[in-house]
Write a protein that binds this DNA or RNA. Structure first.
Lengths: 183, 183
DNA sequence: AAGCTTGTTCAGAAAATTTTGAACACCCTC
DNA sequence: GAGGGTGTTCAAAATTTTCTGAACAAGCTT
């Protein structure tokens, strides 16, 4: 059900008989958009593309669909889908009479961001917060004057940790709310 | 996961080139902490290390100081300092009677995050927002039924863009406020 | 159970990113 | 205007990340 009839020459694209993802098409533009967005979050381009092709499809897609439409390997597709599902960016559905798992996009920004944060920054932040505790003791070897400066830095560091942790639930609540008219 | 970073032996020799950044020391722990934090933001480890060594020092450091203490190349040091300055994570100061530029850490989380966001995600988001405008036209080729679904996806996408853009100033204001007593 | 279909794993290949180091440019000071 | 200190650039090397593809596992169906 995809548009085809791309009878034009493709000087660039491999003639593998696959990827009809030309720019200017709905799927092509969406995939491209998410591919770039993925880079904003330092995620592999393929992950963005996979989310894009799922987002662009009015019906749930299977691993094979994704692999075929994107022209990527099954390994990549499998790994990408698993990552997207782990961060909650896609949901799996099961159509009756079909053994394949199919995927639909998560459209709640709140859930999307929660998953992403949990996956990427949260572990590092947690680890850093832990390290913070051992630091004050290491200041003993410095002169009183130096210690004054370094202690204020340490306080700043603690404050960062505290602020970000307190901001997060707030921000997520905001993102969960419906959009109001511009004031 | 071990931090080999050269200098595995010789905790004694204080020769110029050696890196005395052992774990358990103030500098070592701070550098390590920021090296890990950098990875949380998908920045090169060296960038985190550079910020760390500057953060750990009670006095402003020069490029040479950084390069020597971290045991990295001048090229890396120069690039890292430039990046950190561009995102506003460090400030340059000039000590009288010294031609070298010296650097101190930015301790305002607000400024730190503003710079980081501006540098990393903002351009991508801006670009994506632009692309959004051309998308509705591409839906024409779909059936009415499909279009209903895809249009709602498009609305979600627009809403994301709008929400994140509106949340940002809000969040940054929050981060700029002094920390209040826990309530 | 044999034969499909669906999906995962993982070692090696490919690609992208980061680091190095030496050459270079730009002031200063003398 | 030579010499030395300070910092940047960039091509190539090292490292890390991502992708591939074929082998493998697990489940249905007959």
């Amino acid at each position: 059900m995809t548009k085809s009839t791309a009878a034009s020459a493709d000087p660039e694209l491999p003639t593998e008989g696959a990827s009809p993802l030309l720019p200017g098409t709905w799927e092509g533009e969406i995939v491209d958009l998410y591919t770039h967005l993925a880079q904003a979050f330092s995620l592999p381009k393929s992950v963005g593309a996979i989310f894009g092709i799922i987002f662009a499809s009015p019906t749930p897609l299977s691993l094979d669909d994704v692999v075929e439409r994107l022209g990527i390997s099954k390994g990549s597709g499998s790994a990408g889908l698993k990552l997207l599902q782990r961060v909650g960016a896609i949901k799996s559905t099961f159509l009756p009479g079909d053994r394949r798992t199919r995927y639909t996009p998560e459209t709640s920004l709140r859930r999307l961001l929660i998953g992403l944060l949990q996956e990427t920054v949260a572990p590092h932040l947690r680890q850093s917060a832990q390290r913070l505790e051992t630091l004050p003791a290491l200041l003993e070897e410095h002169s009183a004057e130096e210690r004054k400066i370094l202690e204020s830095r340490l306080r700043a560091l603690s404050a960062w940790e505290s602020k970000t942790r307190r901001l997060l639930p707030f921000a997520l609540a905001f993102l969960g709310k419906p959009l109001k008219k511009q004031g």
